[in-house]
Design a protein around this nucleic acid. Structure first.
Lengths: 204, 204
DNA sequence: GCAAATTAATGATTTATTCAAG
DNA sequence: CTTGAATAAATCATTAATTTGC
């Protein structure tokens, strides 16, 4: 492949890595001299112009903000939805929230089966942290030798599993799965996409 | 108690299969309700808690990224060797950092070069910069729907594109899983969609 | 073949960052 | 400037694979 004209800058992995490092370090809107300098360094790894550097920071910063905004609005929606009654038969708050907008991919989430217990466990993580901090009494989960639960985020203790016997490996049903019904999908996007978190819905 | 305590969750093949399917489909960071739901379903196949699901996605995602990064840096090295002929006037920290392989220590790297005057950015100058830098063709647009990938890591331009189709029918266990929908959104960013195929399927 | 010894995977924790709100 | 919220990265720890000596 003769390599098309290549109308625009295509950062090499090294360049990208360096730029991201700088971003992490705090660089956001480098001024002309800075850009020059950066460009000079990056040019070692491949063709690049000052404007590329400039645009990169502009875009990166903007997209970062955008990402956050999205997360935020999603989160808010989630909170809001929690207070409303379920609009649709199968549309749960979380789904609605998660699937929302900007990304235009309303997909998400496996709704369907949402069992009743769903709505009651929202207490979660806050509780977790609190109990953790208070070093209260261990409730369920007698045997949790060390650190008890999930550190920061994680999760809520789902008690769902207790509804069913452990199912020793040898007894596992093999045929099984019946899974999720489908439709929705997962959310994708990237890591942050969904509203955040695995926890936290307790409003704050 | 003859039975060893078994300190950590050991996913059953079915659970693993389902989780991987979900991952492939795009699920990356399920939020609490989603985790609950997933947990509820998976609990049918064996003991499992919400935190296990949470951790699984965290780890899987992280290791996927890690894998990609590793591939990338290898690629970089190759590229570098190509350019290695260029004499270096002086080896700057950033270059050194960038050039050395996978696990680089992020912090510290750029501090020296940048910190000093770098952080004193002046917002207003941005516009002028464009002209200065000769930003002739106004391309990039800061706020753009994430149709593509968020500049951030995103494009770590992986050359390995592996947009895989939703779920190849042929690979689905016949009567078992019925997994999900599968609709790929193709959004996945940095991590390729692949999930590792786990080795744990056998035995258990 | 089969365990003890090693090594590879991967579950679980901890630590650092990021942006925004107060 | 500090704190809140939510990770992602780094790291620790255990389990499963495998290799190896008999």
């Amino acid at each position: 492949m003769p390599q098309a004209p290549s109308t625009r800058w295509c950062p090499t992995p090294e360049q990208l890595m360096i730029l991201e490092e700088m971003y992490k370090t705090g660089v956001r809107t480098p001024n002309a001299p800075q850009i020059q300098q950066i460009t000079a360094h990056l040019s070692y790894y491949g063709k690049i112009e000052g404007k590329n550097v400039f645009y990169w920071f502009q875009n990166h910063k903007a997209r970062d903000r955008q990402k956050l905004r999205r997360r935020l609005s999603r989160h808010q929606q989630l909170l809001q939805q929690h207070q409303m009654s379920l609009p649709l038969p199968q549309f749960h708050p979380m789904e609605a929230a998660a699937s929302y907008s900007s990304v235009l991919h309303p997909h998400q989430i496996f709704h369907q089966i949402i069992s009743p217990h769903f709505l009651q466990q929202e207490g979660t993580e806050a509780m977790n942290l609190i109990s953790k901090l208070e070093a209260s009494e261990g409730e369920e989960d007698p045997e949790r030798p060390p650190a008890t639960c999930p550190a920061s985020y994680a999760c809520e203790r789902v008690t769902v599993s207790e509804a069913r016997p452990p199912v020793p490996p040898c007894c596992r049903p093999t045929r099984t799965l019946d899974l999720f019904p489908t439709r929705s999908t997962g959310l994708i996007r990237e890591e942050g996409s969904t509203s955040k978190s695995s926890s936290c819905f307790t409003s704050h």
